[in-house]
């Protein structure tokens, strides 16, 4: 499997990463190089093997339904690129 240029641009759009026309061919070549490495897994017979999504075979621990977090919006909004009001703001689409 080898990525075409339009596929590269589709993936970049999906990932919200701008790729300029000048960069596109280079990105395409590098991705295809990497995918070439990954394709080694194609040939492996994994019939009947359960995927291993987590590093350890344990189940989830649950939290009690209690409010533990205080209001820290001043501290949290201090790190926002722009926050002129109580809200985090962002240019409209």
């Amino acid at each position: 499997m080898s990525l075409t240029l339009p596929e590269v641009m589709r993936i970049a759009a999906l990932a919200r990463i701008a790729v300029t026309p000048a960069e596109a061919a280079g990105v395409q070549a590098q991705l295809n190089g990497i995918l070439g490495l990954l394709e080694q897994i194609d040939a492996v017979d994994t019939a009947g093997v359960e995927p291993m999504y987590h590093a350890r075979d344990v189940t989830l621990r649950l939290r009690a339904d209690e409010v533990t977090e205080p209001d820290r919006r001043t501290a949290f909004q201090a790190v926002a690129p722009r926050s002129r009001t109580a809200c985090i703001s962002c240019r409209r689409s």
Binding site: L38, I41, D42, V44, T46, V49, E50, P51, M52, Y53
Partner: peptide, 9 residues
């Protein structure tokens, strides 16, 4: 999915 199965192996 395939990679996660190989991870099991």
């Amino acid at each position: 999915l395939k990679a996660q199965k190989i991870r099991r192996l």
